[in-house]
Design a protein around this nucleic acid. Structure first.
Lengths: 191, 191
DNA sequence: GTCTATAAAGAGATAGAC
DNA sequence: GTCTATCTCTTTATAGAC
């Protein structure tokens, strides 16, 4: 399916919501007639499904790739945050749509996407658990909560991050890495 | 407007999305006829608007209330996290709807709600900035980023927190407070 | 305050020509 | 691969009785 079609769909789905986006708006955005869409796609929902698959396979491979290049447990978490944030913010529309519109998929497809998402979350939790075992990450909070807290911190940024501002995905990754690992409290000697 | 009407609307809006929720489903959920809704409300969007006002005034007063009861800067941040999470998770449907469906409001009303939200965010940023000035919170990351990071951490929990699980809003608040203030890294001596 | 009935508009999707 | 034309269904909202 044409990348432009998915890109335009994601843009509209993210701006106006999947259900509120009409095939008319979509075709206008693409500069074609409504009916032409149905040569590429059988149903409007196919677009949402493809966007979700795209976003998740993309972020998973990007995170895996970054993490695999370093071996120290703490460095692997830094790489994970960098990979997640840059993948997500470089393609905001598709990731935001995936993150917020899952409920609009048919049950079968929703289960499929949730299972992809679970796979990604297991990967993150494993990286954190390994770091706990190595003594680099605190063990008094369960790995599951540490993973959820990390994803909370990173994912919600999609709601306010403005690609045109001064803040870049990389500088945000630096700040959030430091915040996540060291905390917000003032420390006498920062490691 | 009847609280039951808003509660049912929020439940459906959060489960299926505002645009995807029909007045038919809403009336079925309430056990009345579709037309009866329009005695209480002029447009479907009125429901969304009321839900957003409710949620924001509620969380702002709850957070203000908690924070005002303590004076140590660090304690005020702990109170803020507790107040935010308990207010949000005790009324998940309305808060989740407010957090995710702003774009479905008319421009005028959206601006109004965003301004309410800005008011709340300024309050949080002030609490953090005061703590920075008092030397309790690190100053090498701008208060604005510390605020955004905190809201990211707390708000996204609405997507996965399950009120029927073993985790309570209070225990989650404890874990997230510790994570936010002290960080995920293992520390030799925890303060 | 709720009902039955219906208006009026907009939605997703298809048929068939080019 | 895109077009014009159209079908069919669902949507929000209103009129007016009780």
């Amino acid at each position: 399916m044409a990348a432009r079609l998915l890109g335009t769909a994601a843009e509209l789905f993210w701006r106006n919501g999947y259900a509120a986006t009409t095939t008319r708006e979509l075709s206008e955005g693409l500069g074609v007639q409504k009916a032409s869409l149905y040569y590429h796609v059988r149903k409007k929902e196919d677009l949402l499904y493809s966007i979700c698959v795209n976003a998740l396979t993309n972020i998973l491979s990007r995170a895996r790739d970054e993490v695999s290049q370093v071996s120290l447990p703490e460095e692997r978490i830094r790489a994970l945050i960098r990979g997640h944030l840059t993948a997500m913010l470089d393609d905001k529309d598709q990731h935001a749509t995936m993150l917020t519109e899952l409920r609009s998929l048919t049950p079968k497809r929703r289960r499929e996407i949730v299972s992809l998402r679970d796979q990604y979350e297991r990967f993150i939790e494993d990286v954190i658990r390994d770091a706990q075992k190595a003594g680099a990450i605190r063990a008094d909070i369960p790995a599951k909560i540490l993973k959820l807290g990390l994803l909370d911190l990173l994912n919600w940024a999609i709601f306010w991050f403005d690609g045109n501002g001064e803040l870049t995905p990389k500088s945000l990754a630096d700040d959030f890495t430091s915040l996540y690992l060291d905390g917000a409290k003032r420390q006498l000697q920062r490691r």
